[in-house]
Design a protein around this nucleic acid. Sequence first.
DNA 1: AACAAATTTGTAAGCGCTTACATTGAGGAG
DNA 2: CTCCTCAATGTAAGCGCTTACAAATTTGTT
Lengths: 333, 333
Amino acid sequence: MATIYQVSEAAGVSLATVSRVMNGNAKVSERTRKKVEDAMASLGYQPNAIAQSLASNRTNSVGLLVSELHGSYFGDLMSTVEHVLKQNGKHVIITAGHVDEKREHEAIEFLKSRRCDALILHAEAVSDDYLKALVDSKIPVVVINRKVDTLDENCFVVDNERGGYMATKAAIDAGHKKIAYISGPLFKKDASDRLAGHKRALQEAGLTFDETSVFEGDFHESSGQEGMQHLQKTLSDFTALVCANDEMASGAMTAAREAGFDIPSQLSIIGFDNVLFSRYLYPKLTTINNPIHAMGEMAAYWVLQHVYDIKSPIPIEHLFVPEVVNRDTLGKL
Amino acid sequence: MATIYQVSEAAGVSLATVSRVMNGNAKVSERTRKKVEDAMASLGYQPNAIAQSLASNRTNSVGLLVSELHGSYFGDLMSTVEHVLKQNGKHVIITAGHVDEKREHEAIEFLKSRRCDALILHAEAVSDDYLKALVDSKIPVVVINRKVDTLDENCFVVDNERGGYMATKAAIDAGHKKIAYISGPLFKKDASDRLAGHKRALQEAGLTFDETSVFEGDFHESSGQEGMQHLQKTLSDFTALVCANDEMASGAMTAAREAGFDIPSQLSIIGFDNVLFSRYLYPKLTTINNPIHAMGEMAAYWVLQHVYDIKSPIPIEHLFVPEVVNRDTLGKL
DNA sequence: AACAAATTTGTAAGCGCTTACATTGAGGAG
DNA sequence: CTCCTCAATGTAAGCGCTTACAAATTTGTT
C-alpha cells in the first residue's frame, strides 16, 4: 500500500504538496497538480483515512446509534441518514444499543473512541443526564425520537401524544364507541405519550376511559397477540382496537383472526409507525405515520450544517407531526 | 480529552507503561498497574482508537458491505455479524452498495481506506475479477451469497439450485401439476440457479417445462404483482406459483387476492428466503429458508479465526442447505 | 555479598498524514 | 537593475499511540 511519501517521491515534490492536491484546499500550480495526480494513479495510491484523521482531527464520519440493526423502523432510519450524509461525502458508522443501558453506553463510547465528528443517537436506555453530559462535552450530538429537557435544540421528535390522539380520533370518527388499546411499555416516553393521546381523544368525545380496556405490551408482535387474547376475555364487545405500534397490531390481527373475527367488519384495528411491512399485512393496516424518514433526514442535515458548515436545503425543524394512513383495517360503524 | 501522556504523568510512569496496562499484553507489576488504572479513572481517560490503529496497524474493526441498509434479509445479516463480532471485542463498520457497481466499489474502497482488518462482502455488482484482485491484495475478504470461481475458501453460499428444486418439489408433492414461476433477474446467479432447480424438479416429476410459465421479475414486491397479473392472462389454470423470493411472493398474493383467488385453496404460493415478514403475511407464507443467519455467523467466525486467531466454536463450512418452511400458502390438491 | 538471569520500566523511533512557518522564485514597480 | 510582493513549494513539528530495544530493578544462586 503506497504512502504519501512514495507519491511525493514519484512526483518529485514534497509531502506537503501531495497533501495539498489531495485536499484541494491550497493553491497548487496546474503542472505540479498533474504530476502528482499521475503519480497517484500509477501507484494506485489510496490515502490512509486513519492517518488523515489523526493528523487533522477530522474523521468525516458520523456515528449513528440505533436500537437494532434489523426491523423496518431502523432500516428506514439508517438508510435515510446514510443517504443524506454520503451525498455530502461523509460516512456513517452504525452501532446498535439493543435498548440496554450498558450496551448503549458502550456503543456511544465506541463511536467517541472512533472520533466521529458527530453523533446521531436513537438512544432509549441511557439517562437524560448522560445525554446532557454528552452534549456538554462538546461533541455535536443529535437525539432522535426522544425529548430531553434542556436539549431542545438537539432533539428531533414526533408528537406521539398527537399521534395517539389521531389514531383514536379516527376510530371515533368512524363511529366506534368502545375502543380497546394495546400500549407499549409505559416506562417508555413514546408509549405513555401515545396512550395519553388516546385518553384525550376519548375524553373529548365524551367517552369514558376504562383501565381494563388497555393492555400493556412490549412493542413486539407476540405481545399484540397476547393483548388481543387478554382483551377478548376481559372486555366485551369492543369494536375497535388501537395498537401503539404496527408489530403489535400485526400480532393482534393474527389473534383476532384465530378467534374468528373478520377485519374490519367485526373488529377494526389501527397501528402506529407505518413501517414498511404494514403494507404487506392483509388486510393492509390502517396506521399512523411516524415520519422517521423525515426525522432521519433532518438529523443528518442538522449535522451537515452545524458540524461541516454545509447549509441545509430545508429549514431545521424539531417537532414532527404524525398523520393517519388510511388503509383497510378501519371499518365504519 | 485526556491523552496517554497525561495519564502517564498523573501515574508517574512512562507512556509505554500506560500503553502496556491498556493492552494487557506485557507484564506490568500489580502496583504500577493499579497506579495507572487510578490515573485513567480519575482523568476519565479514553484511548484514541484512531491513534491506536495508526500505530498498531490494527483497527479491530471489520467492514461489512450489504446491498441495502433496510429490508429483513440485510437486517438479519447485519445483526448476526455484529453480534458475533462484538462478542469478541471487534467492531463492524457497515456500508451499503445499492447493487451498483460504482457504489459497491466506492463502499469497498471506503472500508479499505478505514483500514478494516477484514471485509465481509455481500457484493452483487462488482466483477469477479475485482473480488479476486481484492483477495490477492492481502486484505482478508469473505464473500456472502456469491460464488467466485477460484475463491471457494472465501465464499459462503446457499445452494440456490437445491432451494429452487425443493420449492417446486414441495408443490409437486402436494399434488400440483401446473406450476408457474416468478423468477428474479436472471443475470443474477442466485436467480438463475433457483430457476434451474425449478426446472430440475419439473423434469424429475415428468412434467414439461414451458417458457410461458415463467415471468422474470426483479426481486421486488411490485414485480410479484406484475408477474401474477401477467401469468394470469397468458397462462391458464396453474394451481401453484413458486416465487424466487418472499417480496415477490407477497406481491403475487396481493394480485391473486385482487383477482379473486383464495389462497391456498385456489392457488398455492411458495416464496424463498424466509425473511421476517413472511410470517406476518396472511396466510402465512410457505417458503424456503435461506440460512442468512447461519451464513453471517459463519462469515464472522471465519474472520475471527483467520484474522484474529480466535478459534471458531463451530467448524467452518462454505455451502449451506436451504429447507422448506411449511406454513399456510401451499395447499394439497 | 557478588553476580547472572529474569522481570519490570523507560527511551525513542516510527505509523501516514496535516499544517504553521520558512523558503524560493517570478513578476512588477521604481 | 534592485527591491518588494505574492504565489508556489518545501521543511519540520506534531496528532496519540505502539513497540523494539536499552536501562534499571528485582530475584535467585552460590
